[in-house]
Design a protein around this nucleic acid. Structure first.
Length: 193
DNA sequence: TGCACGATGAAC
DNA sequence: TTCATCGTGCAC
């Protein structure tokens, strides 16, 4: 049975065009979507409940603000790819690259709600990657692939979206105060109030 | 070649 | 508030 036939993954897989838009729009629309990662024959599914938008080279909180380097290379690449980096020497952080090649913007996935084959906690970007077995080997991975992708839920869901400043970017001056963190209101898996 | 520090999380 | 832990980016 192929992955796309498995019921847990559900709904419609997001296509390239979904990611080829403003990161703020992509961030808001990623809420409620299902992140699917298949490894070692195990398909894990998490419902995205918290995200942050990183707008590009002018956004001082974004890694791409320091220019194009080996680490940030995939942020400058085409949309719909995973930007996974190591933070504090011990946690991986998972981002989705947005906008056309050459525009270095992305959306950080901060928390998911366990849907399938997830035992560990998932509230926070580091924990979410640990629980879903996401590490830097997936950096640059195409999210239109068969083992790592995002799908719409089978049934449409209604929820309110909360806007807050991003976490851990106090060094970014006025950019730190912008409301670029989005999460599903009252969801217990959101990392921080 | 060296070094300060981070889009974190947990313990104290 | 402190610490674990190490790749990255930039200074020297």
């Amino acid at each position: 049975m192929s992955l796309e036939e498995r019921p847990a993954a559900g709904g419609q897989r997001l296509e390239r065009g979904f990611y080829d838009r403003d990161p703020i729009v992509v961030a808001r629309e990623l809420l409620g979507k299902r992140l699917v990662h298949a490894s070692d024959g195990i398909e894990q599914v998490g419902r995205i409940v918290e995200v942050e938008a990183y707008l590009g080279p002018h956004d001082l909180a974004a890694h791409s603000a320091r220019g194009r380097t080996r680490r940030t290379e995939v942020m400058f690449g085409p949309p719909g790819h995973a930007y996974v980096y190591l933070i504090y020497g011990m946690y991986s952080c998972m981002n989705v690259v947005t906008q056309p090649e050459g525009v270095a913007s992305a959306v950080l996935l901060r928390a998911v709600e366990p849907v399938k084959n997830i035992q560990e906690r998932t509230q926070g970007p580091g924990l979410l990657c640990k629980a879903m077995r996401i590490d830097r080997r997936l950096n640059g991975h195409d999210l239109l692939s068969d083992d790592f992708f995002i799908v719409d839920p089978v049934r449409a869901e209604r929820f309110n979206i909360v806007k807050r400043p991003r976490i851990g970017v106090d060094y970014a001056g006025r950019w730190a105060r912008r409301l670029l963190r989005f999460y599903i209101q009252d969801n217990p898996f959101v990392s921080k109030k």
